[in-house]
Amino acid sequence: MTTENKILTSELKDQATKIMAQYDQPRSAVLPILHLVQNTYGCITCEAETEIAALLQMPIVDMKEIVTFYTLFRSRPCAKVEFNVCRTLSCMLRGGEEIIDHLKEKLGIQPGEQTSDGKFGLHLVECLGACETAPTAQINESYVGGLTKEKIDQIISGKTK
């Protein structure tokens, strides 16, 4: 009996299978497959968790454990532009808190929230490993360092167009 997979389409399933083949035990592929699914759909839904758990023959509760343990996995779709601003020591020393305050004011949201039009999201993260360009943020996939209030404004207006 085959059930129609909503998340793991045949194409994704092929990719997932290739990933699994790289590991000597299939369960090791759970993080890469979660990344694959999140990159495709924007977040990890219960549906996705169920299908991936079935593919890897893992108890479903373990999937929930993994998705809630690792900070990079989202259960809800992210905004178009995600500001992940570092709040650890070197960035704090070089003005990170002012950047965070500026973003809160400019976007009118608190960390963990999205603007109501879904365009911008703000998250506070721990050290990104780019302390030499502090204050640094990871904006969607890219690291952007040497942040200033002006740079933030430019990015916001640039992305709004």
Binding site: R27, S28, L31, P32, D62, E65, Y70, L72, V125
Partner: peptide
């Protein structure tokens, strides 16, 4: 192998657990 945002996975045995597909 791409991690997923957990400093503790830099601890060698936590890294192994993560690589094995667990927390």
């Amino acid at each position: 192998h791409q991690g997923a945002g957990a400093y503790i996975c830099g601890e060698e045995t936590a890294l192994l657990e993560s690589l094995e597909g667990k927390k």
